[in-house]
């Protein structure tokens, strides 16, 4: 059974069909890179996956059940979305890391936070750093760590390495690869064709809200 399935999905905004009769099955453990021209519907596709928006026509099934039958919050706890432009709220990095614990009514696990900070090459003091003093790349990595504090079923990534240098891009790629090996399904929007060939098992090309191609990459 697919973990996520789009069935004749349409998403219309005004007169435009942003997603236009799209059908796809995504299996558990898939690592799919999503590519295609700007305005092709990539970010909308991800927002539909985590139920931040709903289809105007068609169905999305999560674990075989229509998304509309789930509590939206439960869906978003399972399907984690990391935005293209990272938005850090509050005053400090700490405010951002505490939020996922607060919404789950769970005790803050500082060891997990420090472990992730170190994995992404930050020192522990970064936890108390003010967000206004962070660079674009730092913000992007902090936003990603915020998504990883609890292991999701599906991780949606929207150009999360666009502000990173080569070294940090590799760190992020390795972390995501490890998560995928740990069973997390990955959908990663990118403009970097080379990146899409490095780790994924499929490349989905979206154009005008439709699937232009779905290429399965043979493992070497």
């Amino acid at each position: 059974m697919s973990i996520l399935e789009f069935k004749n999905a349409f998403y219309t905004h005004g007169d435009d069909d942003i997603i236009n009769d799209l059908s796809i099955k995504i299996d558990k453990g898939d690592f799919i890179y999503i590519v295609g021209p700007s305005g092709g519907g990539k970010s909308t596709f991800l927002k539909l996956c985590c139920h931040l928006i709903s289809l105007t026509k068609g169905k999305i099934l999560y674990k075989g059940i229509d998304m509309n039958q789930y509590d939206p919050i439960d869906l978003r706890l399972d399907i984690s979305y990391c935005f293209q432009t990272p938005y850090l709220f509050g005053d400090t990095v700490e405010d951002n890391f505490l939020f996922p614990y607060k919404v789950r009514n769970k005790k803050v696990d500082l060891n997990k936070i420090y472990e992730l900070l170190e994995q992404f090459k930050f020192n522990r003091d970064f936890f108390k750093k003010e967000v206004k003093n962070l660079s674009g790349g730092e913000k992007q990595r902090i936003a990603l760590i915020r998504n990883l504090l609890f292991k999701p079923e599906i991780l949606l990534l929207d150009e999360v390495t666009s502000a990173l240098d080569a070294e940090n891009t590799l760190i992020v790629e390795d972390a995501i690869k490890d998560l995928n090996e740990d069973g997390v399904t990955i959908l990663w929007v990118t403009h970097d064709i080379e990146q899409s060939k490095r780790h994924g098992n499929k490349i989905l090309t979206l154009e005008n809200g439709k699937i232009k191609s779905l290429e399965v990459i043979q493992s070497e």
Partner: peptide, 20 residues
């Protein structure tokens, strides 16, 4: 909008996402 949607996407309820 970005702030609210970010909080919603992290599993926040509409109240915790709009409290500010």
């Amino acid at each position: 909008r970005e702030e609210v949607e970010t909080k919603l996407s992290l599993g926040g309820d509409i109240l915790s996402s709009s409290i500010e």
